[in-house]
Nucleic acid binder design. Structure first.
Length: 887
RNA sequence: GGGCAAUUAGCUCAGCUGGUUAGAGCGUUCGGUUCACAUCCGAGAGGUCACAGGUUCAAGUCCUGUAUUGCCCACCA
C-alpha cells in the first residue's frame, strides 16, 4: 500500500488536479438536467490588467458557494467572463502607445481599435489562467466577453428597445468632460476631492451708472461665457438692480441682471455670474430665463474664439492671465483662500470641465421603480443588510444616465444620421438607404456606449438573450452576486433595473458585498501604490488552498481584510496539518481499504468514536447554517476548529493506541478505530473541499486508491442524522479533556518533564465519573501525557503530591522526590486567589435583593449552583494546601 | 454638508436574539527531537470591551451623545 508522502507540496498536484476536473467536465452546467439549478455569473474582471488579491477574494467566495451547492446536488453553473472596460482599457492602451511616442490619433480609429483587441487577446487568457490557478470551478464552455458578438447584439437590441419606448433620448446638457481623455464622463466616473483653491471677487460695472456689483467665483475664466448676473429675489440689497444691465469686464458684453431663487444671499456677495454653458446650475437658470448659452471651451480644454484674445490658451493658463488683467484694470477686488470640491477624471486624473454638448441619455426614473420595489419586498437581499440603504439612496435620487462616450473602444451607438435630410434612424443594423429621403448618405454615430451599458445586461446576455436559449431558461435568474461596495450603483443597481425591464424578474436573489483588500498598514492595495500582492506568487509560495483558506479565515464578514504575505501562513499551516493527519490515518490502516461510500456500524463504535461523530454532526449543522447565511469566514473557522482541535488534537490523540495496536486481541477495536477515523476524515475533506479544493481532492485520491477515478468535487455533501449528537458523551469527554489539561498544566508549572509520565489519581464526586474514567484510562493517558490513571470516589491524597481541582473531581499527581513544595504551594495559592475572587463576584450578585427579586428563577438557580461549586473547590484547594505543610 | 460602517489582548479579528470567570490566530515568554505534523506539541503572560450618560436585577451586547478612523454620496457660485 502506498503511503502519503511526508511533505505537503501543493505544486506537485494542483495543476494536474485542475486538468482532471476540466477533462471530466465537472464544471459544465447542463441545461437539460433535472436537478435544481444554482447559478452565479462572475463579476467580469476588467481586461485592463491581470487579477489582484481582491479578485482572488471575490472569486474564492463564489467558488466556495458553487462547490458547496454542487456537492449538495444542484445543477450548478458559474459563468465566467471578462469586461472590455471601455475608457479604462482605452486609457491603458493609449499609455502604452505613448511609450512608442504615438497617440491614438496617429493610428486612426480602425488601427487603434485593432490594437486594443490585440491587448485583449493578450490579457484575456492570462486572466482565465489566473482564475484556474485559484481553483475556480467556472464553466469555461460558456466564457463570455462583453464585446463578443452575442453580447454586442444584446446591447444593440436594448438600445433600440429603450429608444422606441422613449427611454433613450438625445439632448443638450452640461456633462462632465475630461479634456485629456476627450470624452464625457458619467457622474459616477468623476472623483471629487477637496483642494486648496481661491475665491475671486470681481466687480461688474452697471450699464449707464457709476456703480458696480461684486461677484464671487472659483473659476474666473468662465466669466468669458457669462450671459447674466443673478440675485435672490428676496435680497433687499439687490432688489433695485433686477432688470438692469451690467457690463462684463474685458469683453464688454451686456448682461441682464435677473432674479432667481437658486442664489443663496448668504454665500459670497449674493450676486452670481451666470455661465450657462459651463455650470450645471447656471444651465438650469438659463433655461428658466431663456438666456443665451455661450461655449468658450474647445474639447481639449483650451479656450475657443468666444474667449476673445484668450482664445487658444488652456483654461487654467487663461485663468492666470485673466486674473492678472482684471487686477491691472481694477476689476479684481480680492482673492480669498477657499476649499474647493474639484472633480477629476477617475481614469486620468485631469480636472473635469462642465461642458455643454449633445449626448444620449437613458431616462432612469421608470427603470428605478421596480428595482426599489425588489429590495423593499425582500426579493433581493443584501449581505450585510445595511447596504440596502446605499442602494436605495442612489435609486431614489437617480438622475438620467449619460450613455454616450467619445471613445473608440466600445459598442458603437446604433444610431444613423442621413447627411441629406438629417433623419435619425435607430436600428439593429445599418440601413442601406435613408428611410426618410431614400438617399444613401448615411453615417453612424461616432460615439460608443458607456461600458456599463453592456455589463448591466450581463446576468442574461451571457446566457444568449435576446434569444430564448435553454441556458437562459435553466440558469436565469441567477442566485447570488458577489462584489465590492464601490459598484453598487454603477453595476448592481443597473443590473437589477435591466433585468426587470427586459426579463421581468430580478437578476439574482442575494448580493454579497465583501470588503476591499488592504495591506498590513490598512492601506488599500493598489497598483499605483505598489503595495499589492500577486495571487500567483502566493500560489507559488504557499499553494492555492493556502491562499483561499487564508482569505476565507481572515476576511471579516462585510469588512475590509488587512493582509500581508504572512497571512497566508495560516492557510498553509492548516493545509499541512490536514496533510499530516491524513498521512497518519493512512499509515495505520493496515489492510483496511477506505471506500467513498463507506458506512459505519454504530453498534461497535467506542466512546471516542461516538464522541467525534457527535461533534461532526454538530459541526456540519453549523457550517450549513453559516454558508446559507453567507457567513463564509465563520463557516471556514468552524471547519478549521473541528479538523484541528476536535479531530487532530483530541480524537486522534485519544485513539492512537487503538489504531496502532497490532495484537490479535485488539483487532476488533482497532478496526473500528480505523473505520471511524477514516469516515470522519472523509467528512472533513468534504466539508473543506469548497474552501480547499486541491488538497482535499489530492488526499481523497491517496486515501481511496481503488477509486482514484472518483472526484471529491461530485461527492454528496456530508450529512449526519441528528441521533449522532450525544450530550452526555460530550460532557464525559469534556471531563477527560479538562482532566488532561489540569495534569499538563500542573506538570508544566512544576517543571515535570513529559518523559516522566507521572501517575494520576482522581478522587471523583460520584461513582459514575469514576467508572467512566477507569473505563477510559487509555484516552486520559494519551491526552494527559501521563502514566497510569486510577479513579475512585475515596481516593486518598498521597503525601508529596501535586493537586488540582476540576468540576466534579480532584486530581493528585504523586511526585516523590520531584516536587518542589514552595512551587506547588504557590500554584495552589494562585488558583485559590482566582477562585475567591470569582466567589466574591457571585456572592455579590446573590446578595443583591433586586437581582433576587427580578431575575428569572433559572438564572438565580445557576448562580447558586456556581456558588456552591466554587465553594467546594475552594475548600478542596485549602485542604490540599494544608496537606503540604510540615514537609 | 449628508449618510454608512468601525472602535474588544502588541497586531488582525470572533463574540448571533442582553445572563457560565470576554475568545481565536499571529506575536511574545517558558518547556518540549513522545515514531502524523517543529508549517508541530504543551504551558503561561497579556483586555477599566474608544469616552460620557441612560435603560435594566443584569450591558462588550440595547438607547442617546461625544471623539477618532475609514468608506460612500453631495451642482452653493
Amino acid at each position: 500500500m502506498a503511503e502519503i508522502p511526508k511533505a505537503y507540496d501543493p505544486a506537485q498536484f494542483e495543476n494536474a488536479i485542475y486538468e482532471e476536473w476540466l477533462a471530466k467536465g465537472i464544471f459544465v452546467g447542463d441545461p437539460s438536467s433535472k436537478k435544481k439549478p444554482f447559478s452565479v455569473v462572475i463579476p467580469p474582471p476588467n481586461v485592463t490588467d491581470v487579477l489582484h488579491l481582491g479578485h482572488a477574494l471575490n472569486n474564492t467566495l463564489q467558488d466556495v458557494l458553487i462547490r458547496w451547492k454542487r456537492m449538495q446536488g444542484f445543477e450548478t453553473e458559474w459563468l465566467p467572463g471578462v469586461d472590455h472596460a471601455g475608457i479604462a482599457t482605452q486609457v491603458v492602451v493609449e499609455k502604452n502607445l505613448a511609450r512608442e511616442g504615438l497617440s491614438r490619433h496617429d493610428l486612426g480609429r480602425e488601427k487603434f481599435v485593432a490594437r486594443v483587441w490585440k491587448w485583449k487577446e493578450e490579457k484575456f487568457p492570462q486572466i482565465i489562467n489566473q482564475l484556474r490557478k485559484i481553483g475556480c470551478s467556472c464553466d469555461w464552455s460558456r466564457t463570455r466577453f462583453t464585446m463578443d458578438e452575442g453580447l454586442s447584439r444584446a446591447v444593440t437590441e436594448v438600445f433600440v428597445r429603450l429608444y422606441n419606448k422613449g427611454l433613450i433620448y438625445r439632448g443638450e446638457r452640461i456633462v462632465n468632460w475630461c479634456p485629456d481623455c476627450l470624452t464625457t464622463l458619467s457622474d459616477d466616473e468623476v472623483e471629487r476631492e477637496e483642494v486648496d483653491s481661491f475665491l475671486y471677487y470681481i466687480r461688474y460695472k452697471l450699464k449707464g451708472r457709476d456703480e458696480y456689483l461684486a461677484v464671487a467665483t472659483t473659476r474666473p475664466e468662465t466669466m468669458l461665457g457669462d450671459t447674466a448676473l443673478a440675485v435672490n429675489p428676496e435680497d433687499e440689497r439687490y432688489k433695485q438692480y433686477i432688470g438692469q444691465t451690467a457690463i462684463l469686464p474685458i469683453l464688454d458684453r451686456q448682461l441682464r441682471i435677473i432674479a432667481d431663487n437658486y442664489v443663496d444671499p448668504q454665500f459670497g456677495t449674493g450676486v452670481v455670474k451666470i455661465t450657462p454653458a459651463h455650470d450645471p446650475n447656471d444651465f438650469e437658470v438659463a433655461q428658466r430665463h431663456n438666456l443665451e448659452k455661450i461655449n468658450i471651451l474647445n474639447r481639449d480644454g483650451t479656450l475657443n474664439d468666444n474667449a476673445g484674445k484668450y482664445s487658444g490658451l488652456d483654461r487654467l493658463d487663461a485663468r492666470q492671465k485673466l486674473v492678472e488683467e482684471l487686477k491691472q484694470k481694477g476689476y479684481l477686488l480680492k482673492i480669498e483662500n477657499y476649499q474647493l470640491i474639484s472633480g477629476t477624471c477617475y481614469r486620468c486624473g485631469a480636472v473635469v470641465e462642465p461642458f455643454l454638448s449633445l449626448q444620449w441619455f437613458v431616462k432612469m426614473k421608470p427603470l428605478a421603480e421596480p428595482a426599489i420595489a425588489a429590495v423593499r419586498s425582500g426579493k433581493l437581499r443584501f449581505h450585510p443588510e445595511h447596504w440596502v440603504k446605499t442602494y436605495l439612496h442612489w435609486l431614489e435620487n437617480v438622475r438620467d444616465w449619460c450613455i454616450s462616450r467619445q471613445l473608440w473602444w466600445g459598442h458603437r451607438i446604433p444610431v444613423y444620421y442621413c447627411r441629406d435630410c438629417n433623419q435619425i434612424t435607430v436600428a439593429g443594423a445599418r440601413p442601406s438607404t435613408c428611410p426618410g429621403c431614400g438617399g444613401g448618405h448615411i453615417d453612424q454615430d461616432e460615439d460608443v456606449l458607456d461600458t456599463w451599458f453592456s455589463s448591466w445586461l450581463w446576468p442574461f446576455s451571457t446566457f444568449g438573450w435576446p434569444d430564448k436559449t435553454p441556458e437562459l431558461e435553466k440558469f436565469f435568474p441567477t442566485r447570488a452576486l458577489f462584489t465590492a461596495s464601490e459598484i453598487i450603483y454603477l453595476w448592481v443597481a443597473r443590473m437589477v433595473m435591466a433585468s426587470y425591464e427586459f426579463m421581468g424578474v430580478e437578476p439574482f436573489s442575494d448580493v454579497y458585498i465583501h470588503g476591499t483588500v488592504r495591506d498590513a498598514n490598512g492601506i488599500k492595495m493598489s497598483k499605483s501604490l505598489g503595495n499589492g500582492i500577486d495571487p500567483l506568487l502566493i500560489i507559488k509560495n504557499y499553494g492555492a488552498d493556502a491562499l483561499r483558506a487564508s482569505l476565507m479565515l481572515v476576511t471579516p464578514e462585510g469588512q475590509d481584510p488587512s493582509i500581508s504575505e504572512k497571512t497566508f501562513e495560516i492557510g498553509r499551516n492548516f493545509a499541512n496539518k490536514l496533510w499530516s493527519a491524513s498521512r497518519f490515518v493512512r499509515m495505520n490502516l493496515g489492510d483496511y481499504k477506505i471506500r467513498a461510500d463507506m458506512k459505519l456500524d454504530d453498534e461497535s463504535l467506542e466512546m471516542p468514536d461516538r464522541w467525534i461523530l457527535s461533534r461532526l454532526t454538530r459541526t456540519l449543522g453549523l457550517i450549513n447554517n453559516y454558508l446559507s447565511g453567507f457567513r463564509f469566514s465563520t463557516a471556514a473557522k468552524a471547519a478549521y476548529d473541528f479538523a484541528w482541535n476536535d479531530y487532530c488534537s483530541n480524537y486522534l490523540e485519544m485513539i492512537k493506541p487503538r489504531l496502532a495496536d497490532k495484537r490479535d486481541a485488539a483487532a476488533g477495536s482497532a478496526q473500528v478505530a480505523r473505520e471511524c477515523a477514516s469516515f470522519v476524515l472523509l467528512s472533513i475533506l468534504k466539508m473543506l473541499h469548497p474552501f480547499m479544493p486541491f488538497i482535499t481532492e489530492a488526499i481523497w485520491k491517496l486515501l481511496l486508491e481503488d477509486q482514484a477515478q472518483s472526484s471529491i468535487s461530485t461527492q454528496p455533501w456530508p450529512e449526519m442524522p441528528l441521533r449522532y449528537i450525544n450530550q452526555q458523551l460530550e460532557e464525559d469527554v469534556g471531563t477527560i479533556i479538562r482532566l488532561a489539561e489540569a495534569v499538563r498544566a500542573a506538570c508544566s508549572d512544576l517543571d515535570v518533564p513529559p518523559s516522566k509520565k507521572p501517575r494520576v489519581l482522581v478522587r471523583c464526586e460520584n461513582p459514575d465519573t469514576a467508572r467512566m474514567l477507569n473505563d477510559h484510562k487509555e484516552e486520559v493517558k494519551n491526552l494527559a501525557h501521563s502514566g497510569e490513571v486510577l479513579a475512585s470516589i475515596e481516593m486518598a491524597k498521597p503525601p508529596l503530591s501535586a493537586s488540582a481541582v476540576i468540576p466534579g473531581a480532584e486530581i493528585f499527581i504523586p511526585l516523590e522526590g520531584l516536587i518542589d513544595i514552595e512551587q506547588e504551594r504557590a500554584r495552589l495559592e494562585k488558583e485559590l486567589e482566582q477562585k475567591r475572587a470569582y466567589l466574591e463576584k457571585i456572592q455579590k450578585k446573590l446578595n443583591n435583593s433586586d437581582f433576587m427579586a427580578n431575575a428569572p428563577a433559572e438564572i438565580i438557580e445557576t448562580e447558586k449552583e456556581k456558588l456552591k461549586k466554587t465553594d467546594q473547590i475552594i475548600e478542596k484547594l485549602n485542604k490540599n494546601l494544608e496537606s503540604l505543610t510540615g514537609w
